[in-house]
Design a protein around this nucleic acid. Structure first.
Lengths: 180, 180
DNA sequence: TTGTTTCCCATGTCCTCCCATGTTATCCCC
DNA sequence: GGGGATAACATGGGAGGACATGGGAAACAA
């Protein structure tokens, strides 16, 4: 599980340090996989586990399903493996860097099952924008009643802002998957 | 469950003692998680249980739900793990300290499933403000006919445990430790 | 060759672990 | 109940190691 975020620099050889905390989450894997985020202006990355999950999910779809081909092409086909050197660094692909607007600094952000590599200014802008939405969505986190040991979660009565209407979706592109 | 509050100092290495009472609440965990509060000018922290709860709640959201991304980014992406040393201290992140206005003293406040780390003056200010609101809201309590508080012995046994919670001596006392 | 990529080593900084000390609270014995 | 011994705690400091980062030599392609 990838948590926290770090600022790091990109050297002349386009190398970037993967934070030690993330390397621990990778459990000693010597490769990560990178791709251009489908819906955000950043690079995303993960370890073997999430790739395997993607692959398995896609394999479950019907061979004749056009969506299968779309997913396989866009997700698996655009994925770039990157090996970590002895110092725990990877080399960023020039094309990925360009798409994410990255030059000499990056912010690496944990997002549960994956991490993201942002151009710092873009990250700040995105975060400022999402902060308000996150605050409004906090109600989604409190509704869990079954909370074991540590004092039960506040039984807050305030039903969230009618937020529980997740967009009705007949078939999500990928099965729901938790972080981690 | 985190209860009560404590003033503590920040040494030159930015270390802060987690009060023994809170450590007991953590049940021997050797890590806590810190983040910038979403709605108050302070740092918040918790143990593994609440993080797991956050993660699970976020995982339950639809992958395409924008609120999921907002929560994952703002909550998981900003969460900083901090290991406790042998003395029960953690090291505060410089960025978090700056955001909370913390320099060399903190007040650590229990808030049930989490705790908060305040710059002392900010805490007092917030508290004074809430106190005023509470006074203005006293009317809401009017319907209660009798106070049973008087003869009510303190909740059993574990009085203020070993923790050296020195009540603020000479100044307008924090009336009754309330939270939030 | 020239340019590019991959591996390996070097270096300085920062962090983590460990030990030390003073203080407070708890317990036990008198 | 008093007083001292003992344990728990908050706090300070130091040394070794992990880490981020830079640079160079070897491998490879054009």
């Amino acid at each position: 599980m990838f948590l926290s975020n770090f600022e790091s620099s990109v050297d002349v050889k386009k190398r970037v340090s993967i934070p030690a905390l993330f390397r621990k989450s990778l459990g000693g894997q010597e490769s990560v996989y990178l791709w251009e985020s489908l819906d955000k202006p950043c690079i995303e990355g993960c370890g073997q586990a999430l790739v395997d999950h993607f692959e398995a999910s896609i394999s479950d779809l019907d061979l004749m399903d056009r969506r299968r081909f779309a997913l396989a092409t866009v997700i698996l086909g655009d994925m770039t493996p990157a090996r970590l050197d002895e110092g725990g660094r990877i080399v960023l692909d020039a094309a990925l860097m360009a798409k994410a607007g990255i030059t000499d600094k990056v912010r690496i952000v944990g997002a549960g099952d994956r991490f993201q590599i942002w151009e710092p200014a873009r990250y700040e802008a995105m975060r400022a924008e999402l902060r308000q939405l996150a605050i409004e969505s906090l109600g989604l986190l409190k509704s869990k009643p079954n909370h074991s040991q540590q004092g039960h979660a506040k039984p807050n009565g305030h039903s969230n802002n009618g937020a529980s209407d997740t967009p009705p979706e007949d078939e999500p592109p990928l099965p729901r998957r938790g972080f981690e």
